[in-house]
């Protein structure tokens, strides 16, 4: 049996990287006494799979991982037990049972939504709304993406599904591709907004929060645990 667990990462926990978040949960699951399933062998490990790694510095209200378990109590009980051993900065939002036919968390991820805010002393000097309009009017936004192995040219525009801004709140929200093949980092989009207005985004100007992680298809994206059920 597999449960899909949704959690929120906030506060100082944004400084904890993905691998350490995995280690954190492995220990938390032991503390909570969850009847987790282990692999075989001399160093058994928990059968756990995370959806979309979150970079250091980012906050999130919509993180997911799958956990294989031997037995279930109830969604509420498991959530409560896990929350009792969280630190400030981690909160379990839900524990749901995954359909046996469902794909694993990582492979299911297709899109993610983000809200981008600015440090007070780093607010943009132009209208974000205008910048969004200009960017979205383009057919193509060629950018160079550097990976560990190579640099590839890609079109940012086709991966931006929704983009909007609020000049009063000084916020940008977006829905972008988060699949393994076409993942878009939100700071890339903001960089392009600045570029559009002849400005340069600094390295430490913005605070990014992932709001939700989605599966499904374009125009029909649903949260990653949409088909999982409370028990």
């Amino acid at each position: 049996m597999t449960v899909r667990i949704k959690f929120r990462k906030f506060g100082v926990l944004k400084f904890i990287g993905h691998l350490d978040v995995m280690r954190y949960f492995q220990k938390a699951i032991r503390r909570a006494g969850i009847d987790v399933k282990y692999s075989m062998g001399f160093s058994p490990h928990q059968l756990m799979s995370f959806a979309a790694p979150l970079g250091v510095g980012l906050l999130s209200d919509g993180e997911y991982f799958d956990l294989e378990v031997n037995s279930l109590t109830s969604s509420e009980d498991m959530k409560k037990r896990l929350n009792e051993c969280m630190v400030e900065g981690m909160e379990i939002l839900s524990v749901k049972l995954l359909d046996e036919k469902a794909g694993n968390a990582m492979a299911s991820v297709q899109a993610a939504s983000y809200t981008v805010r600015f440090y007070e002393e780093k607010l943009p000097v132009f209208s974000l709304k205008d910048a969004v309009k200009r960017l979205m009017d383009k057919d193509k936004i060629p950018v160079v993406k550097t990976t560990k192995k190579s640099t590839v040219e890609m079109d940012l525009r086709e991966g931006i599904y929704e983009l909007s801004a609020d000049d009063d709140k000084k916020e940008v929200t977006m829905l972008v591709n988060a699949s393994s093949s076409g993942n878009i980092k939100p700071n890339f989009v903001i960089k392009e907004l600045y570029h559009e207005m002849g400005e340069v985004l600094g390295d430490f100007d913005i605070i990014i929060t992932r709001n939700e992680t989605y599966t499904g298809t374009l125009n029909n994206f649903v949260p990653l645990d949409f088909e999982a059920t409370l028990f």
């Binding site: 506060g11 100082v12 904890i16 990287g17 350490d20 630190v87």
Partner: peptide, 8 residues
């Protein structure tokens, strides 16, 4: 993470 405290 060396400098933020807040550990379990």
């Amino acid at each position: 993470a060396r400098y933020i405290g807040n550990e379990v």
